[in-house]
Design a protein around this nucleic acid. Structure first.
Lengths: 139, 139
DNA sequence: CCAATCTCGTATGCATACGAACAATCGACC
DNA sequence: GGTCGATTGTTCGTATGCATACGAGATTGG
């Protein structure tokens, strides 16, 4: 058996991650068509920890500065978050949920939980926990 | 404990998938800076099964028609694949590796294997197999 | 106190990704 | 043999995601 035969695309971690992510994105957009996964992640983080500067929000959700700017811009455009200058540091832009954003989060939590459930549906409960634990160690 | 407290972003499958994918992409681009993961996937598939129509190659690698077109265009632009019309179906564009593309694949296989290894490095061998098996069931 | 350095937000370019719409073509059924 | 539905490739619009570069502002070391 040569090297070519041993490298099977469908068994590579990167390929599997991409395929599973695709399925997850489809499930997400069926349950929460108004926002994207990254937009939801930003809102969920703001819900958890309160107002954050734009860059810090990016770091807290695994997005670089250029990416989080686009996400915040789009969320602000539809009125789910609002930005304001930080009086104590004029470089900073503080991002927070609006009342509408908070209501959307509260109303969408059940759907978000359903997304995770449906994504993991092919696995038994013990296997789901195992998968999440293994993935956590690869971040 | 209310619903908000139970939804922890860092424990959601979608969020974990995104973070692990980001780490994997960084490892990949360090080992194979010339191509992207999707470009590599397309070439690996062509290596496995031979020439394919553009759309079929997309389906075989989990990319929709719009995405595979861009991937094939960029690979063709740098001479790693070549396209030719299918004589038996004038709608089809047959995609195949060039000699240079085949050489690049042969030379890059070790690096690609190292990418998968490094991505899974935090796990024991048995855990790696377990993770791949669980992910396979979620595709 | 001030100069080197760092941080923050912004902007641009490139590469996925998907949905939608479109023209050309093929196939199947009548 | 002609019509209708499906397939193929293309294009457009939107949304990540990273690298890079830049100006304005903050911080720290000397």
């Amino acid at each position: 058996m040569d090297a070519t035969a041993r490298y099977v695309l469908d068994e590579q971690i990167g390929y599997l991650l991409r395929r599973v992510t695709q399925r997850h994105l489809a499930i997400f957009s069926a349950h929460l068509p108004q926002v994207t996964t990254t937009q939801w992640a930003a809102m969920a983080r703001l819900m958890q920890v309160g107002p954050l500067s734009q860059n810090l929000l990016g770091r807290e959700t695994g997005m670089d500065a250029a990416t989080i700017k686009g996400v915040v811009d789009r969320l602000a455009r539809v009125g789910l978050v609002a930005t304001s200058p930080d009086p104590s540091d004029r470089r900073r832009l503080v991002v927070d949920l609006t009342a509408e954003g908070r209501a959307y989060c509260a109303q969408g939590l059940a759907a978000a939980a359903a997304v995770s459930d449906e994504t993991l549906a092919p696995l038994e409960p013990a296997e789901r926990a195992q998968l999440l634990a293994l993935l956590s160690r690869l971040v």
